[in-house]
């Protein structure tokens, strides 16, 4: 991870592979500098400036106001609800991810490719629609609406709806990291453990889990970032009742719409810090492993398996 210094005046030093390469194998220095400048300019304009401005806007009224906003009971309750929603949806999606990866990577069965496509489905659906589908089922005009009202159970405009919507949008994250990883690892190690007398749980805890721990951690980091930051889907099912059904992103919206811009940015800076921590952890995991490249952040379709012939 050592940063390379600028090597403007030493074209031959750029890297070993290029020392002996003919001149036509690389771009002239001015083209190279121009491309680097364009790339850095674009990154600065679209990523660095917004990032810096979040903190600048958040601290515009001073540190006192900043901490006062964060200590506000409404902010605290939004933080609590976000922690609850992530605390339920991340472990459940984790369990699902491990089960799905085990069944897909360790066994052959028909329809596997359809299952892979279905697991990916929540990624291609607009957050607004992701929230709406639960309104259609549990809302007052929905399938179970009348029954729920009769029994005085609230799902939509209440905490269960927020948890459900969060579960939906973060559904594929852990599974997507684990499936390719476990497919690549194959099943020979587990088979050896079984032949040597380990039972199913021992095989999983002592052989499989140590093999997938980095992938699992990676999936959890990305899943958690999305769970805590989800806005559109949660916004549909929340009803935005302050102190009750308000998550951190929804609280940002309320403050912003009430024209409390520094307050909105103060709360938003918490989510920005979460994003920066996520990126740092993600980079750290990638540094410690090979092959993990954030398949959930770049939702390319999972690789399909050719139909295996029966042995």
């Amino acid at each position: 991870m050592v940063e390379q210094p600028l090597q403007r005046n030493q074209p031959g030093m750029i890297d070993d592979a290029k020392i002996n390469a003919p001149r036509r194998m690389s771009e002239p220095p001015f083209v190279r500098r121009l491309l680097i400048a364009v790339a850095l300019g674009f990154i600065a304009l679209f990523l660095v400036v917004p990032l810096v401005s979040v903190f600048a806007e958040a601290l515009r009224q001073g540190l006192g106001f900043y901490f006062q906003t964060l200590r506000d009971p409404m902010t605290v309750s939004a933080i609590e609800l976000t922690l609850i929603a992530a605390g339920i949806s991340v472990p459940l999606n984790c369990l699902f991810g491990v089960a799905a990866a085990w069944t897909i990577a360790k066994f052959d069965f028909p329809g596997k490719n359809i299952l892979l496509t279905l697991i990916d489905l929540p990624f291609s659906i607009s957050p607004v629609i992701s929230g709406m589908i639960y309104v259609l089922i549990f809302g007052a005009q929905g399938w179970f609406g009348p029954w729920l009202i009769e029994h005085n159970i609230r799902i939509i405009f209440a905490v269960p709806g927020i948890v459900l919507a969060t579960m939906f949008v973060t559904f594929p994250f852990v599974a997507r990291e684990l499936i390719p990883l476990m497919q690549a690892q194959g099943r020979t190690e587990e088979e050896a453990a079984r032949v040597l007398g380990a039972n199913g749980w021992q095989t999983f805890w002592r052989v499989t889990l140590p093999n997938i721990k980095w992938g699992l951690l990676y999936g959890v980091i990305l899943c958690n970032a999305r769970a805590m930051g989800e806005f559109g889907a949660v916004s549909v099912v929340s009803g935005r009742i302050q102190g009750q059904t308000n998550t951190i992103p929804l609280h940002v919206q309320i403050l912003y719409e009430n024209n409390n811009i520094p307050g909105a940015f103060a709360v938003a800076s918490l989510l920005t810090l979460l994003a920066l921590v996520t990126l740092a952890l993600k980079t750290w995991v990638e540094y410690n492993t090979t092959g993990l490249r954030g398949t959930a952040f770049t939702p390319l379709p999972l690789k399909k398996e050719p139909n295996r012939k029966l042995a």
Partner: peptide, 23 residues
């Protein structure tokens, strides 16, 4: 190419995924 801060830029590219859309 190699340039100063390359690793930082590489990590930062994922910011739009990591940053909540409301922010």
């Amino acid at each position: 190419y190699d340039f100063f801060g390359k690793q930082f830029v590489d990590a930062l590219v994922d910011l739009p995924f990591a940053l909540p859309t409301a922010v």
